[in-house]
């Protein structure tokens, strides 16, 4: 599976390299779009010293962790939620006759490394945040764990979004509400949102395990909802549970696939 992934990703990278100018512009574009979110955080903190009980450094840490996970998930698996385009163009048929998983073929479809720019940027913000926070090693080990769990959670969301498109071929934007919406949600401390939403994000759609719960653990701060501090350590379990659901949904989607006219 990893071999097939590398093989196809490399093929698409070579194909994209044929269009050098486009490649350079897209890389710059991805970098600037990521920069907009940072600009918004900068403007917010130019107007206030704390947002829902969190200071700029803590928000940088939370933003950086979630955005890094999202950017890497998007780079590696983001194409999965473009499946309705493949369905319409009939190219999913071609993927289904190859001896490789259609999910891997989807994930690598039109793979271009230019989206790495956003990950670099998020990583930088995370690094600055961490450097200023002075977190003891006894809790800092959780940072890489939460980023990896976050990648799995977002990859599962992209897959769920893709699976949804087998049902809603004409309404693909619904999927962006979950994927890109999920990324935007985690850019700010979840204490910004209504407690009912945060409970939903903890117990139903486990987005709180991307950066909020593990982030609280790393920061050594109590959960406003009163959950114990070890809740954050459950991130890998939450990620695997969501991945399992996504895998089932994807299989169901492939079985329901209707193909196009001819």
């Amino acid at each position: 599976m990893i071999r097939t992934y590398a093989l196809l990703a490399w093929a698409w990278t070579r194909a994209a390299a044929q269009y050098r100018v486009s490649f350079a512009l897209m890389t710059a574009g991805a970098f600037v779009i990521g920069g907009l979110d940072i600009a918004v955080i900068w403007i917010i903190f130019a107007n206030t010293g704390s947002l829902a009980g969190f200071g700029l450094t803590e928000v940088m840490f939370l933003y950086g962790a979630s955005e890094l996970a999202f950017a890497l998930a998007d780079l590696l698996f983001g194409s999965v939620d473009r499946i309705s385009q493949q369905i319409r163009a009939g190219t999913l048929d071609v993927m289904l006759i190859r001896p490789a998983s259609p999910w891997v073929q989807m994930a690598t479809d039109r793979f271009t490394p230019h989206r790495i720019g956003r990950a670099v940027q998020a990583g930088t913000v995370l690094g600055i945040g961490l450097a200023r926070l002075d977190i003891p090693l006894t809790r800092a080990w959780m940072v890489p764990v939460m980023v990896v769990s976050g990648i799995v959670i977002f990859a599962a969301l992209f897959t769920l979004g893709g699976a949804l498109q087998f049902l809603l071929t004409d309404a693909t934007e619904v999927a962006s509400a979950f994927t890109y919406g999920g990324a935007m949600l985690n850019q700010y401390p979840l204490s910004v949102y209504d407690a009912r939403i945060v409970r939903g994000l903890t117990f139903v759609l486990p987005l709180a395990f991307v950066n909020w719960q593990p982030g609280l653990y790393v920061l050594g701060r109590p959960d406003p909802l009163g959950l114990p501090s070890w809740t954050g350590l459950l991130s890998p379990a939450a990620a695997l549970a969501l991945a399992a659901v996504a895998a089932l949904a994807w299989r169901a989607g492939i079985r329901r696939y209707r193909s196009t006219g001819s």
Binding site: D170, A171, E173, V174, A177, G181, L185, Y188, Y193, D194
Partner: peptide, 19 residues
């Protein structure tokens, strides 16, 4: 497609509103 777009715009509206 328009309804799906409206749905997504609304979800993002809710998120922005809280921030």
């Amino acid at each position: 497609a328009a309804l799906a777009g409206a749905f997504t715009n609304t979800v993002f509206g809710v998120l922005r509103a809280y921030v």
